[in-house]
Structures are given as C-alpha cells and as structure tokens.
Design a protein around this nucleic acid. Structure first.
Length: 362
DNA sequence: GTATGCTTTCGGC
DNA sequence: TTACGGCCGAAAGCATAC
C-alpha cells in the first residue's frame, strides 16, 4: 500500500485557515533576493487547474493567477514536519512493515494482515483515509498493489482523495496504455531518449528488447525499466535508517564569481550542517560543495577525508578549497546558489569532544 | 578479473 | 518575454586494490 498526502504543504495551510479553501493557494520558497524571486513548492488543485505546479517560478505563478484571488504563502517547514510526524505515527500503526518516503508519503506492507486479500485491503485503506481525515483533517490518496511500484503508480492514478486498487491480474492492463513518462523513474530526460527509440507507452517499453535497453541505459537502469514496465518489483518495504547525507544550499544575494562573497554566504550553512551532524552523534568522512550557476546548471566538487570528523573548522577549510577549485574549473558563469553537503557518516564515540573544546579550555 | 572506493551527475518530490 | 528552491538517494564512470 502506498499513501500519498494530497498537495501536502498547501493542504496544511488550508486546514489552518479554511477561508483559503476554494481559492488558488500557492506555497512558495522565496529565495531571499526580494520581490517574487523563488520557486513554487506546491499548489492546491484550484491553482493547478491553471497550470501552477511545483518548481515553476513564483513570478510566473503570479502572472498566471493574476485577478483570480490567489493566496501566496511562504513555506513553513517545521509546521509541516509536525503534522507529518503525527500522520506517520497513524500510518505506522496499521503496517506490518513501514517505510516513510519524504515528508508526505509512505509504503505500508499489509499483505500479512489482509492475507493477500485485496478486498480486505480495500477496507483497511478506507479506514486509514477516514482516520487521517478525523484525526488530522487531511485527505490522502492511496494505491493498493502487489508491490511497491504498482502501489505507487496506483496512488498517483486518482487524486486528490483517491483510492485505486490494482490486483495482480490487472497490472498489465493498468500500465500498458500509460505514457512512458508516467512510469516511476522515467523523468523528462529519459522520456526524450525513449521517444527517440519509438517508445511512447509503458506497454511499448515492456515489448522492447531488454538487451537494447541495457545498451542505452546501462545494466541497472535498463533492467529496471524492463521490469518496471511489466509491473515487476521485488524491493521490500523497509524502515529508512539515518540520512546518508546532510546538505544546505542558499541563493546568493547576487550572482558572483568572487570566492570571498560566496564563502561569506556559505559559512553560516556550515554551522547549520555541523549542528545537525552533532545532534545525531555522527562524524562524516566526505564533504561536498554545490554551485548552481546563472544558467541553473549544477556543479559539485567533493573530497573524502582521511579520518572521520565533525570539526566546523574542517568543514570551512575544505569548503574554501573546493569552491576555489570549482571556480577555477568552471570559468564560464557566475554562481547563483551555493551550498555544502557532508556524507559518509560514522557513529561518533560517546562523549566525544572536539579540538575547539580543548582550545577554549587551554 | 572482480571488488571497492571516490567523484560527479541525474531524477524525484 | 522572462521569470527559477532546497532538499534527498541512486547510478555512472573512473581509478585503485587485491
């Protein structure tokens, strides 16, 4: 079973302020450059009707919704996180095995408790929808299928507030006529390539020679696309462990190639990343910098450390070196956004102290 | 020849 | 007419170790 909370951020805002209902609601990530600079995080279905959706520029959304009484709100991440945690607790209580995906989705393995019976599963899904509506006043869309992939495709099939059941014998019919771009894992880029191969629907992908797919997309992805097109997926529902990376990125006040200006804006992100690492009792072995250029192309540079650390000074020093290198190697464009990421975590020893502690004591 | 590690890019939400 | 976030994980591609 896949549960997807409908237009989550915007629905949370509607719940807090019911007067928003029936108006276009657009939740925005303002970049901090002033005005309407930034992107749409999510929009309710009234706004979507006009083509306003995740990822488009706020300024474009405003133009589309001009004179339509639209509401534009800044994202309130902590608020959504609190709502999410309560809902995930409810969902988890109904699952034999549970897997949260992002802030607003989850897979529930319920095959044991329904003994593989899709009609019993249907009733369970109805109960879950009712419970989330009663307890948290939010709607969700649920997909039921023989595996995660089909359940995910099913939850997307009818929304908002949908319930779609795809039994094993219905999988082929359910998938075959869909545009290939609808298949999970097929983004815009992959869709373009498949179009060139003459593949427009998932059914056509299913009939396409696997070996040729492997030639074009590599072994992993080629095999994945073949299986996925047939609704085959054996990946288990499993609890997500700790994050494998922690990152933070900002939009610079102005585009620049000046290392010092970039560092001035990125150093504060180090403190954030460092505190997140610390509160989780981790050390990291790898550090990366990210630069989004004026043309929105993305470049990264990273370095592995000899030994795990969580020293903020190390983050700062490495960041400087990595941005220096990146600017040398990417001569063309100004940097628009810049960020930092740490990964390859290792449990820190209990009670571990830091060089800075000794320095301050000395 | 295979396993493993490192760096960079890509795609999803 | 243009406009443009902030995360995450997975895989590719290459180098090196054994």
């Amino acid at each position: 079973m896949h549960v997807d909370l409908d237009y989550f951020f915007a629905q949370c805002e509607e719940r807090e302020n019911p007067s928003l209902m029936n108006k276009p609601v657009v939740v925005c990530v303002y970049s901090g450059r002033g005005g309407d600079s930034g992107a749409v995080s999510t929009a309710n279905y009234v706004a979507r009707k006009y083509g306003v959706k995740s990822g488009i520029p706020i300024a474009l959304a405003k133009r589309i919704l001009k004179d339509r009484d639209a509401i534009f709100l800044p994202v309130r991440h902590e608020f959504y996180e609190t709502v999410s945690q309560k809902i995930m607790q409810v969902l988890r209580s109904h699952a034999d095995k549970f897997e949260q995906v992002g802030i607003d989705e989850a897979f529930l393995d319920v095959s044991k408790q329904v003994s593989g019976d899709f009609e019993i599963a249907r009733e369970l899904a109805k109960e879950i929808k009712k419970e989330i509506l009663t307890k948290e006043k939010l709607t969700c869309s649920i997909g039921l299928g023989p595996n995660k992939l089909v359940a995910k495709m099913a939850s997307k099939f009818q929304k908002p507030s949908g319930l779609t059941i795809v039994k094993p014998e219905e999988v082929e019919h359910f998938l075959s006529e869909m545009p290939v771009g609808e298949l999970y894992g097929v983004g815009r880029k992959t869709e373009k390539v498949m179009q060139k191969l003459g593949i427009k629907t998932i059914g056509e992908l299913a009939r396409y020679d696997v070996e040729k797919l492997v030639e074009v997309f590599g072994k992993t992805m080629g095999t994945y696309f073949h299986n996925a097109s047939l609704g085959i997926d054996e990946s288990p529902v499993q609890e997500v462990g700790r994050a494998e990376s922690i990152s933070r990125i900002v939009t610079l006040k102005q585009n620049t190639r000046d290392l010092n200006i970039i560092l001035e804006e990125v150093y504060p992100l180090c403190d954030y990343v460092h505190s997140r690492v610390l509160e989780q009792g981790l050390n990291f072995r790898s550090i990366s910098v990210i630069a989004v250029m004026k043309d929105l192309s993305i470049h990264t540079r990273s370095k592995s450390l000899g030994s795990p650390t969580s020293e903020p000074e190390v983050i700062r020093k490495m960041m400087k070196e990595l941005f220096e290198r990146l600017l040398e190697e990417e001569q063309e464009l100004e940097v628009r956004r810049a960020g930092v990421k740490v990964s390859s975590f290792v449990e820190a020893k209990r009670g571990q102290t830091y060089l800075t502690d000794f320095a301050s004591k000395a």
